[in-house]
Design a protein around this nucleic acid. Structure first.
Lengths: 176, 176
DNA sequence: TCGATCATGTAACAGGTTACATGATTTT
DNA sequence: AAAATCATGTAACCTGTTACATGATCGA
């Protein structure tokens, strides 16, 4: 259901195509949701079938058609129902932690590479977040409450990432 | 693959039944992995079919049979292969963040309840972590490296949970 | 000329959830 | 008398991943 809800939210803000939404996931929603294009196209078609969206096909010269999706009244109601319902707690799944439970069998080289690579990815993630912050939230004090709310999520994303990075540094320092 | 790897690790430490593993997930591995009993029984049977595990059925009076699973040589090799291979970055999926992007449509009551409930769950999680720490890692200084490694994962679990809780407090303070 | 971007999909498979099912024993 | 614990499963379904497919334009 959550992918569906995320699609309802982004299309409620602004109608768009599957491709457009993919770009939003990469740009302004990188800390919120990721999905493959296959998943998006399939889910958008299902949502249209369920009456949550309408689809308008726009022909373009020299380019594939664009299928622009837009919320219906039913879609809006589904969104409101989802917002009213508290989320279930998300299950814990940390495959990296599992490796620490097999410490004796985990070769030192592999461990070093694993942690270094992860640290790089997290650093990259922080860069992405900083770019989003510059682009959308350059002056946090000047934001209206409904603009400030998404900004909070970005801040948490940053802090969680920082917490991870600090931990990696500590672990590496201790075992090297 | 990750569930399979977690099963390999826990069975390598000590053979056991699906039910046993479920208890380990609740007790000492609560910050690492969660899975339902259905998933465990299905996966254990598949792993036996793939030659990663052997299964010994032990009859008990007055109780259902216990099926004790144990790693085979092939299972050990599969574990080593998994440890050597770096993990793929885990996809970002934060349905709660999505709600913040629909701030205007998110009723105040629902939001308050959502955050309060989540905070309670996180607090509960910290209690669970504290219990694990008391039980398994009561004297961190005295641990051998291979005992200390899992302890590190518990510490990160705690810090991430604390980061979340601090953020909830800040958000609630700002909007109330 | 090669890779990236624009723009859409189908099909098979893997992983996870929910519902249903059984039945004795122990604890409250 | 009711609920939790012990111990196993089947079946249907939903969600996410991987592989395959098409085809034009634009910049290096």
């Amino acid at each position: 259901m959550s992918l569906r809800a995320v699609l309802l939210i982004t299309l409620q803000r602004e109608p768009g195509t599957g491709y457009d939404i993919l770009q939003r996931f990469k740009a302004g929603l990188a800390h919120v949701w990721q999905a493959s294009h296959q998943q998006l196209y399939r889910e958008l078609d299902r949502m249209r079938g369920d009456g949550l969206l309408t689809c308008e096909t726009v022909s373009q010269d020299e380019r594939p058609d664009r299928k622009i999706y837009q919320l219906t009244e039913i879609g809006l109601q589904a969104l409101d129902a989802w917002l009213a319902e508290p989320l279930a707690a998300s299950p814990v799944r940390q495959p990296l932690f599992a490796k620490f439970f097999a410490w004796e069998r985990w070769p030192t080289d592999a461990r070093r590479e694993e942690l270094t690579t992860l640290r790089e990815q997290l650093k990259q993630r922080l860069k992405t977040y900083a770019a989003i912050e510059r682009e959308w939230f350059s002056d946090p004090q000047a934001l209206t409450p409904s603009q400030r709310a998404p900004w909070h999520t970005l801040r948490l994303g940053q802090r969680l990432t920082e917490t991870w990075m600090e931990w990696i540094d500590e672990v590496q320092e201790e075992v090297e």
